[in-house]
Write a protein that binds this DNA or RNA. Structure first.
Length: 271
DNA sequence: AGTGCGGCCTGTCCGC
DNA sequence: TGCGGACAGGCCGCAC
């Protein structure tokens, strides 16, 4: 599910409920995620106070006065704020109960997500250390992408989905950004000129910002902290439109698998 | 070093 | 209605 806009929507939603709150209890129901939830998490978290709720790429960083909880929502994860009394549904793997009588609940059917604890600077944690720049920051620009693409034969779609190149661009938004930039997904990253990377950077920024404004994309199960879906799926111009006419030129949209991911493009608008 | 896969999981949908 | 297979928003880790 979640790409950067969904994680950012979640961050904005949960942040005011968490900051300044003391953690009263931590309930692990199912520790087997991508990596096991550490068994000693309750004793590490309980009585700590949440100071910050940040995002790095698709990772959420819940900072306390002792350490940081690093949460990834994987493919199907969500975080909700609710009463600790509300009965857990299937796949509600973790509760963090707060002193104000609410609870942060982690739900993840496919269990591709993770919950990791660190008492060091989270930015040097192996999961975060090698990440590329934030796409909405000024350090992400055409010159950077162009330089990074030198000598790379990988398709540009795989290139921009590589979190070591730039974080937060998942399959949906990669398809959308390439359509807006007029670049064919299979075009080799190292064979794209600087001006086209200018366009691509602007497209990535625009698509991600618009999606954040709309509360993310809900194809099947993304929900925000209140359990409500996002609305950006109404704005998708290419993703999922196989065989339908291109909104720009009317030609039939094609689909193909590229790097095991569904890829959609307009053969006449994207070169 | 860069590239391309397998694998982790459950749920859903589609064709037979 | 049941069943097998493909597929789904991510990403690590492994071969080559």
């Amino acid at each position: 599910m979640p790409e950067l806009p969904e994680v950012e929507t979640t961050r904005r939603g949960i942040s005011p409920h968490l900051i300044g709150q003391t953690i009263q209890a931590t309930v692990i129901r199912e520790p087997q995620l991508r990596w096991p939830i550490p068994a000693d998490l309750p004793e590490r978290l309980d009585r700590r106070t949440v100071r910050t709720v940040e995002r790095r790429g698709k990772y959420l960083l819940i900072g306390t006065n002792r350490g940081t909880l690093i949460v990834h929502l994987g493919m199907s994860g969500s975080l909700r704020i609710l009463s600790p009394d509300s009965p857990p549904r299937k796949h509600d793997h973790l509760d963090i109960v707060l002193a104000n009588g609410t609870c942060l609940r982690f739900h993840d059917p496919r269990r591709f997500g993770c919950v990791v604890w660190t008492e060091n600077d989270p930015q040097v944690h192996p999961l975060l250390a090698g990440l590329g720049p934030e796409p909405l920051s000024t350090s992400f620009d055409a010159a950077y992408l162009y330089r990074k693409a030198r000598g790379r034969s990988t398709p540009v779609k795989s290139f921009i989905m590589d979190s070591h190149v730039v974080v937060g661009v998942g399959n949906i938004y990669a398809n959308e950004a390439l359509f807006r930039a007029g670049i064919a997904p299979r075009r080799q990253a190292g064979r794209i000129a600087l001006p086209r990377y200018e366009k691509l950077v602007l497209s990535i920024r625009a698509v991600l910002s618009e999606a954040i404004e709309q509360g993310g994309t809900t194809l099947r199960d993304f929900v925000n902290e209140n359990g409500n879906p996002g609305y950006f799926q109404q704005t998708l111009q290419i993703y999922g439109r196989s065989g339908l006419p291109c909104y720009r030129c009317g030609q039939s949209i094609r689909t193909e698998r590229l790097g095991q991911r569904s890829t959609y493009w307009c053969p006449s608008c994207q070169r």
